[in-house]
Amino acid sequence: MANAVAAPAKSKKRSKLQNDTGWAVLMLGPNLLGFLLFMLGPVVATLFLSFTEYDLIAPLKFIGLQNYIEMFQDEIVGQTLLNTFIYTILTVPVGMCLSLILAVLLDQDLAIRRFYRAVYFLPSITSMVAVAVVWQWIYNPEFGLLNYVFSVVGLPQMKWLSSSSTSLISIAIVGIWKSLGYNMLLFLSGLQGISTTYYEASELDGANKLQQFWYVTVPMLRPTIFFVFVMSIISSFQVFDSVMLMTKGGPGRSSSVLVHYLYQNAFQYFRMGYACAIAYLLFAVVLIITLCNMRFEKKMRDIY
């Protein structure tokens, strides 16, 4: 008897499931098709292409691991990878410190906070192309604003983007400037999550502002700091637009980064297979950072 009652209910549930599947095909279908064609498919296709030689014209040739072997022997990969590391080291710590300081200063009930927020955020909404054009003018060795400021302060005149010793630093400065407001806002939202009771308690214990910063703000903000850190590293590893626009990797290879070399291989030398191998190198780095992030975050949660 009990079975007889349960059976129709089960079949009813199944028919409802089938019903939903029809709707799911209709509503998710177009999205899923695009997702498979332009996102998931290409991720797999890039891996496949990385084992081939392909120039868009001659038929595709399967060459096994040769692209990867070449990649590990390629001095240019080494140099562009090094440049990417240097860019990361130049931008991430400085950018994070500056934006954290600004966020802490802004986290008071200042009357014109909206104004500051808008101003600091302005570079983030501006296209990299516009930013690059303006900064190239600022960096102009003869008539640029920056060299003028340097001459007033008594610093030596620099060649900025057109010297191989300063090109990468110049690009890094633009990178810091552009993402400062964005990082500042991330910190600001983290700061607003810290309860004021911690500050009140530390004040009763006689802590000054600097001590409060070190012993209350920084530990409480640790998850945000870590999030910003990981995001900054991932995005600095993908730097390309600013390099392409301001120096095209030059002079020489002094400011060429990994994605720039990928771009050159794919769309200038038409070595699609080799470029795909480089793409997977980039992918591996980003993946490792993300996985470390997940592991580390879990550990952090256990500790705090």
């Binding site: 498919g41 290409p42 296709a45 890039t46 771009y263 699609m272």
Partner: peptide, 9 residues
């Protein structure tokens, strides 16, 4: 996944 990984295919 960075866009640079999918752009070639």
């Amino acid at each position: 996944v960075p866009i640079h990984v999918t752009i070639i295919p």
